[in-house]
Design a protein around this nucleic acid. Structure first.
Lengths: 338, 338
DNA sequence: CATGGAATTGACAGCGCTGTCAATTTGCTC
DNA sequence: GAGCAAATTGACAGCGCTGTCAATTCCATG
């Protein structure tokens, strides 16, 4: 336990507790020699600062909040993992909060902020674009960092990954495999990520020399079921597409089912690319080629900005690299007589 | 913000701050009249106690930990939701921690407990049965409550739901629909919940008048894929079972796929019952009849015990009711000529 | 109405740390 | 080496609350 106090460290290093405090907080004006001595004492005694005392004496609470309204547990867990790792390193707590964007978000935020003293907040979609939430935070003057926002990007530091470029790469990948009849299963209309992915994909086709207008688009809603339906729509036709890009993995899994039911093999008869690298991507057979968005890393970066007090800096955009994960669901365009 | 301090409340109620403190902490020896007066002042001023100060002055940290090593995000989120709700009400934080049971859990626990001062810990499977974790907690004398433990139940307060009884009810349900050729897809051998569900199911069949030995059992590993494989194994036969009980929903979904591929309809040709009421249960078609384990409620109860300081009480078992959710995947045994 | 024990209340000293500000040391300049 | 500004360090006063313990009030008795 925290039986060791700052006093013990001060005594061991033969300095005042204030100097130890300076070292802990990386404050300037400590001679290197002294700093080394203090750090040695800290390590030797296994000293861990008392969060409550620091919080009471200082202005910080050492608690970072993460606000969610996301139906996807995988996503939430990924954000938590990333943010948590950074928080733990810096002696911060991560407080998970849920806000229902649809139902008087302002009131919920007010209630939440009244109880929890937060040093900073991480916002992920869809709260990342909820004006009521941002307003509440601004009103209390609490710094926040947003993940993948679609709007008001100048309003705060922002962490993104380039969905459009990723989709573009997916298009290129399919094109290079020889596919020419290509379809996309898009997400619902209002969804910004979906729009980005579709646009990026089209752009990729065009860049590869194809005609973006010939990319067939079917609408889905990110569920397995909608992917299944879309799959049936697309694959039942005689000249069905030889490659399909689904805006998320669940819908891609739906295509798998539709293909199976129609007697089509993946990737021999039809190639499939998903998005998200969710667990289902490795559960299906053949494993799904997909795009991994660095969710945990983005959350970790957000936490870092907040902890370093740069949460309210001149708004800046940090971009983290996506990664296309090649697995077994994509193959050469089938050339057998047609 | 917490601009209002205990002083303000004391002044408003014309008592000493110590008396306000007594009211906040529900300490004895406060006259009802005074208590009412103080509570009125608290409400009127919107006073919220400063957690850091309480923690520093007192012995509590106001942080409850939840330790996970669970591959299932749905489960984790459910536990979090439940525990969180209780914690927030009582002004506690919930700290999420991850421990890899397989890899030197003792060291991980030591590292974790050195930094985080926890008033209590909630353990869910599989950490709930990890001796190294329990030992570490005992060593630090930190109270803990366990969810659904399989072993050492006397070692701490324990929260359970009766999986065996639920499986038994599922068996009864299938039996009453007329099914006689019934199969179970079990989980992996070491898994206690799986064993419980299987035993309960058999017991239910026997209790209904059937022969438990005739229940065909196929092993799975809780993944969709293993359910698919098991489904193929079971349904490819001529006299395939008319009803299948899967030990979890993911495997039940696998059966759906197998059935579809084999041209069998659910529930006309084969009835399916799952377990967990995970999101997939409502995603598949027809929606899956399944059993809901009150995960969030169990976690909430655990948090309550811990917060009320009964975490280290004479170990006691709290049982919460499961609920069988009837949806569309079960129907009468098919009597058409066979 | 005095008396004694129990119930109630409050004064006060920190909890372990940081902010402020004054004291001390250091590093240059001439 | 004196003189001075800048760098470094430490003394001290709390942060808002709870634990301790003494003071006060209450209440039933005799």
């Amino acid at each position: 336990m925290s039986r060791v106090t700052i006093h013990d460290v001060a005594a061991a290093a033969a300095v005042s507790i204030k100097t130890v405090s300076r070292v802990i907080n990386r404050e300037p004006n400590v001679r290197p020699a002294v700093q080394t001595r203090v750090e040695a004492a800290i390590r030797k005694l296994g000293y861990v600062p008392n969060r409550a005392a620091r919080s009471l004496a200082g202005a910080r609470s050492f608690v970072i909040g993460a606000i969610f309204d996301n139906p996807n547990p995988h996503y939430i867990i990924a954000v938590q993992r990333g943010a948590m790792a950074t928080c733990r390193q810096s002696g911060y707590h991560l407080a998970i909060e849920e806000v229902n964007t649809a139902k008087n978000a302002a009131a919920q935020m007010r209630a939440m902020l009244a109880t929890a003293r937060l040093d900073g907040v991480i916002l992920s979609p869809p709260v990342t674009d909820c004006a009521a939430v941002l307003d509440a935070l601004d009103a209390k003057n609490i710094p926040y960092v947003r993940l993948m926002p679609a709007t008001a990007k100048g309003r705060s530091p922002v962490i993104v990954s380039d969905d459009a470029a990723a989709a573009s790469q997916a298009a290129r990948h399919l094109w290079d495999l020889g596919h020419r009849r290509i379809a996309v299963i898009a997400g619902p209309d209002g969804h910004s990520a979906s729009a980005l992915r579709l646009a990026g994909f089209r752009h990729g086709i065009a860049a590869a020399g194809g005609d973006a207008h010939q990319v067939r688009v079917v609408k889905g809603d990110f569920t397995f079921r909608s992917g299944l339906a879309a799959g049936h729509t697309l694959l039942a036709e005689k000249n069905h597409p030889t490659a399909i890009f689904a805006s998320n993995d669940d819908m891609a899994a739906g295509i798998y089912s539709a293909a199976a039911q129609l007697g089509l093999r993946i990737p021999d008869d039809v190639s499939v690319v998903g998005y998200d690298d969710s667990p289902v991507a490795e559960l299906v057979w053949p494993p799904l080629t997909t795009v991994r968005q660095p969710v945990a890393e983005m959350a970790a970066e957000a936490a870092r900005l907040l902890i370093e007090g740069r949460g309210s800096d001149a708004p800046h955009t940090f971009e983290l690299p996506y990664k296309m994960i090649m697995r077994g669901s994509t193959g050469a365009e089938p050339r057998k007589g047609r």
